[in-house]
Structure formats: C-alpha cells, structure tokens
Design a binder for these strands. Structure first.
Length: 413
RNA sequence: GUGGGUGUAGCUCAGUUUGGUUAGAGCGCCAGGUUGUGGCCCUGGAGGCCGUGGGUUCAAGUCCCAUUACCCACCCCA
C-alpha cells in the first residue's frame, strides 16, 4: 500500500494506454480539421458564475458536482465541468463571431465533476468538444452530427447508433412542459421516488427514467413532436433529410432529453455497446439562447461533447497496434564502458536516433535480454574488448548479424 | 448521497465456506545452466505486518464489528 496514491476519480494514464489516447486525439484533430474547425483552448478554471448561468440551477452538476473554491482574492472559481460555457465566454469576450461567416471551434481537454466514479466515469475526464456558432440553419446541425459520426466510425467503434430528438424552442417547449407536468402529476404516486422529485425539478428527465414502471406510466404521455411549432418542425425535418441524404443511420427517440438546461431544438446522442450503464459516448445539441443568457449577443450555437474515456474503453477491446522500440539499445558490459557509452548515446541521439540504455554494467545475457525487452532494433555492446579496440559491437537483434563500429563516429550508425 | 461486490508478492489471482505448524501458483525480476551471445527449456533466489484498526479464541489471511480504498450499479451526465 503506497503512502500516497492518486486521489479518487483521478487516474494516471499509463504508458501502455497512452498510445491509444494519442491515436484518439490525433484522429479527433484530423477529422475536425477536415471539417474546417479551429482549436480554441479556454482555461480550465472559470468564474463559478459562468457555469451557474449556463448549465442551469436545477442540475446536479451545479448543485453538487462542481469543484468550486474561493481564490485568495475572494472570488468563487470553478474547475470546468464541461466545455461549452467556456467556449461561449471566449467567443463573446474576443468577438470571435464577427468574421462574416460561422465560427467553428473545437476544444480537447480535461473536465472535472465531483461524481462517484464508475465505469466510463471519472472525476477528471476528457472531452472532445466541437461547436458551430452563428449558423442557425439545419445544415449546421446535420454537419455536426456527420462530423461526430465520421470521427467515431473512422476510429473503428463497434455498434454505433445515433439517436435524435428535437426539444423545441422557447416558443413551443413551455406548453409541452406544462402539458407533461399535468399528465404526470395525475400519476404522481405511481412514479418512482426519483421521478417524484424530478417532477418538480426537471420533469423532462422523467421521460428517460430507467425504471420499468415509470416507462410504463410515460407511455401515454404527451410527446415533444405534438407540440413543435412550425419553425421547429421544419428545422428538424431539414436536419433529418440532410442526414438521410448521406445515408447516416439514425433513429428518432421521443424521450431523448439533455441534461443541461441550455439545449434547444435538435438534440442527439451516440451510443455504443459494452459500456455498462454509461452507454452514451457523445451527446450534444443546439443551444440558441445560451449566448444571450450569458450576456452576449444573440448568437445561435450547436455542438457536441464526446467522452474520450469511453472511447478508449471501447477501443481497448480492439487488437493493439504494435509499437516501435528505439533504434539502439546500448549494453554496458563493464564499469569502464560507462563513460564512453554515455558519450556515444548522446552523439547518437543528436544524430536523431532513438537510443535506450541502462546506466549500470551487466552481463551480456542480461543486457541482451533488456535490449529485447526494450524492443530495440539493434544492440550496441561495449565491453573490455571493444574498449581496447575503440569500437562497439553492433548486433541486429532480428537477423543476429554483427558488425564493429567505431565508438567515436556516430555517423557510422 | 444510496445499494452491492472486492482488497493476499511488482502484475493476475488461489487459499476464507468447515479458524490449526515456516501463506501459495503463474507471469515479471535477480543469479546460474543449456542453446553459437538474448528470446525456448531447466535449476536456484529475492520479494507479502494477507487494506487498516479493534474484537472473539489456546490459536485469525480465514469468524464478528468498524474504517478506508477500488470496482459495479442507482442518482446525475458525455
């Protein structure tokens, strides 16, 4: 039991998994670049107020999951629990929306929520966040979903399914909400305790309750689609036909709801198997009112966040690609060889070669074993004989061919 | 915040039901043998306050209580 360990919900990404992380991050940057997005890196800490106003008071995130602290100046600051709020803040603060065309931004990095850890859920987790600002049209929605789908399918994820819904807008959602609350209130005592609480706090959430009995009750409930205004209906229809045009396999789900308050209209989620309860790998939607909510101009937005940990879990089931080792392993066979070997290693590295070594002399057998373990292509052996001759014995570890090369001429290697 | 499961060697885990001498295996590590100088094989070795603290008992890895960490699920959310 080590005296010190990483704190709960915070995990080391060990060298063995880091290559997979790089793969995912590189793919993300690649796809996002092809879709004409540029990177914005907001700070990891923002004023608490920013998240209070954007995410919504009623969610658990703001109520009990934020890492909030008072800095030495007495300001309340918070580790970002999600990326969108910071992106919007930066957009407004630097007038990034004033370019004549839509602003297309992405962000890749850690987020923080004080939650109970479980499969695919940590307190520090990582998201790819992609946003389009200033484009209110349905094609922006469709493009964002296509981007997400392209990213995930090029990663080779199994069993992808896109689920979509439209949450309506400020002109039609309130009446839906009212009607839903009225319907559910009449059945209040048949709902699970969680849903009785939701009824007051976040009634839309009852729609996707996991309890079977609640699902039964919800069956006859009013649906979003019956309440969409004409504009919302047309918008959603256009999104769907654009996706259909490309042959993207999506499914409509009346009961798909978002956790954060700022979402409007198009909302979507991508799921994949083998994640236990945390089946959503990415989710997002439109948030046309958020900018103004935060005191900025009236700029529409649409975007998504993808949970990288979950992608990594799904991908780690796949066969790993073989990683390459260093070009050389320098085997030091006697104490006298230490100095010359140290110099040789540095000269080789300056030449651009990757070189591994252990700074302790050892037997030939043991050093060759280490060279093998390091997955080096060649071993450079330096012992008494080699020192006397001013040369090193260089062995190709796969063909077993050996040559002698001068110790002081790195260009020969 | 709620529920369930699990903590034994660097790693993966036996052993706990039915308490009983020095707590095991595989992998890894170290040394040696063999192989043309490593990989395969063989021999030997190091390495554990059995998560922590109490309790029961002649005797606790094993039974009881507490505590802590991790895992899974709920909640919430990507």
């Amino acid at each position: 039991m080590p005296a010190l360990s990483a704190i709960r919900g915070f995990k080391d990404i060990l060298p063995g998994e880091a290559s997979l992380w790089r793969l995912v991050e590189e793919k993300a940057r690649d796809v996002v670049g092809r879709f004409d997005f540029v990177e914005l890196r907001p700070p990891v800490i923002e004023r608490t107020e920013l998240f209070r106003r954007s995410i919504g008071q009623s969610t658990d995130i703001v109520e009990k999951e934020m890492y909030t602290l008072e800095d030495r100046g007495g300001d309340l600051i918070t580790l970002r629990p999600e990326a969108t709020a910071g992106m919007v803040r930066a957009l407004i603060e630097h007038n990034l929306h004033e370019g004549g065309r839509a602003t297309r931004l992405f962000c890749l990095g850690p987020m923080f929520r004080y939650e109970r850890p479980q499969k695919g859920r940590l307190r520090q987790f990582h998201q790819l966040d992609v946003e389009i600002f200033s484009d209110p049209g349905p094609l922006a929605d469709a493009e964002i979903i296509v981007l997400l789908y392209t990213f995930l399918s090029e990663l080779g994820l199994p069993d992808l399914s896109i689920v979509m819904n439209s949450l309506g807008c400020p002109s039609c959602r309130p009446s839906f909400r009212e009607s839903l609350v009225a319907f559910l209130s009449a059945r209040r005592d048949r709902l699970c305790p969680d849903c009785q609480r939701r009824l007051a706090q976040n009634p839309l959430r009852i729609l996707d309750c996991k309890s079977e009995s609640c699902q039964e009750e919800v069956k006859g409930a009013p649906t979003f689609s019956a309440f969409w205004c004409c504009a919302c209906q047309d918008h959603f229809q256009a999104v769907r036909s654009a996706l259909g045009e490309l042959g993207l396999p999506f499914r409509l789900d009346d009961k798909l709801v978002r956790g954060l308050d700022y979402y409007t209209r198009t909302t979507f989620e991508v799921r994949s198997g083998d994640l236990g309860a945390q089946s959503a790998v990415a989710g997002g939607g439109r948030y046309d009112g958020l900018c103004r909510e935060l005191g900025g101009p009236d700029i529409p937005g649409i975007g998504f966040a993808a949970g990288l940990e979950r992608l990594i879990i799904l991908l780690s089931g796949q066969p790993p690609r073989p990683k390459g080792g260093p070009d050389y392993y320098v085997a030091i066979l006697c104490p006298e060889a230490l100095g010359p070997a140290f110099g040789l290693v540095q000269r080789l590295r300056l030449r651009g070669l990757s070189v591994a070594a252990d700074w302790e002399p050892g037997g030939l057998k043991s050093r060759l074993k280490r060279a093998d373990k390091a997955m080096a292509a060649k071993a450079v052996m330096i012992g008494p004989d080699e020192l006397a001759a001013g040369q090193a014995t260089v062995r190709d570890l796969s063909s077993k061919e050996q040559t002698r090369l001068p110790l002081d001429d790195p260009a020969a290697y």
